[in-house]
């Protein structure tokens, strides 16, 4: 029962359109980033030049390199910290029966629905109070608001589905809860931790509103804000080539992550929602 020819041709055209629309803007950004001077202002559909001047301009100044390191630092620390806090919390929420557990989980989950703007003014005060304004720690700290609820939720669901037998023996032997987490659960949790860690990393890498508000000097900024603030002397001198080069540089690691960890990312994204 093979479908008729026109149907499979139609199907592959549809697939082609889907792939083309998904990739074209990124392709065009790469193409633009390789053009310089006048070439920039002629619309090309296929690459004509291979000019690395824009990349040199972005990377030689030093500030953009520092900004990339800022982003790497913030995203990495956010991942480590939220995984650590979430694993212990998820253990308590999934393996120990106590009163108020459901309500607690509901509260944690509801935090992920908070609009960032709703906490912005209060958080601004807290960050000034702790003396963290214009410090990268202000971002590490504030990003917990969106990484923690999600990480706790996914890890809790994952842990809940592990069979009870695996910890019974350890409890009988009198192992402490912390030992149980470290010796029994951590080795089993890697898949879920890689998934949530990846999503937390991508989220922290891309965040804009907090980074725009809590950092004030160029050398402290993370890359999304840096790119948003690249400007020329006037509206007509916006350095599009530089902007596209910077965009390609910060997006390439993410594209690589998506290609390598495609399955993990998909399962993490859907775990957050479908399980509801």
């Amino acid at each position: 029962m093979k479908p008729p020819l026109w149907q499979s041709i139609g199907f592959y055209i549809l697939v082609g359109v889907i792939v083309l629309q998904a990739l074209f803007p990124f392709y065009y950004a790469i193409l633009t980033s390789l053009e310089d001077g006048q070439a920039l202002f002629e619309v090309n559909y296929l690459p004509r030049a291979l000019n690395l001047a824009n990349y040199q301009a972005m990377l030689s100044g030093g500030v953009f390199g520092k900004q990339i390191l800022n982003s790497v630092f913030v995203a990495t620390v956010v991942v480590i910290l939220s995984l650590f806090l979430a694993v212990t919390a998820a253990y308590a929420l999934s393996r120990i029966r106590f009163r108020g557990r459901g309500l607690l989980l509901l509260t944690v989950l509801s935090v992920s629905m908070f609009p960032q703007i709703a906490v912005l003014s209060g958080l601004f005060e807290v960050i000034r109070y702790f003396g963290l304004f214009n410090s990268l720690w202000s971002l590490v700290f504030s990003y917990m608001i969106f990484t923690l609820p999600f990480t706790v939720w996914v890890l809790t669901t994952f842990m809940r589905n592990l069979p009870i037998e695996i910890e019974e023996a350890a409890i009988m032997d009198g192992a402490s809860s912390f030992t149980i987490i470290r010796r029994v659960f951590l080795p089993l949790m890697w898949p879920a931790m890689v998934t949530t860690g990846l999503l937390a990393f991508i989220h922290a890498w891309n965040e804009f509103l907090f980074a725009l508000t809590f950092l004030s000097t160029d050398s402290q900024r993370t890359v999304p804000v840096a790119i948003a603030l690249i400007s020329g002397r006037s509206e007509f001198e916006i350095p599009w080539g530089n902007i596209m080069a910077a965009s390609v540089i910060v997006t390439l690691p993410l594209v690589a992550l998506v290609l390598v960890f495609q399955r993990k990312i998909v399962s993490g994204l859907t775990a957050g929602a479908v399980k509801g």
Binding site: F41, V223, L259
Partner: peptide, 30 residues
């Protein structure tokens, strides 16, 4: 195809906004 479809999601919002701002440019936009 699935990986390709995921790419717009992974691109930072700011970067997508800039890419499209350039593609939608009134004089030189594609």
């Amino acid at each position: 195809v699935r990986a390709a479809v995921l790419i717009p999601w992974a691109i930072p919002t700011i970067v997508s906004a800039k890419m499209w701002a350039w593609m939608l440019h009134d004089q030189f936009g594609i």
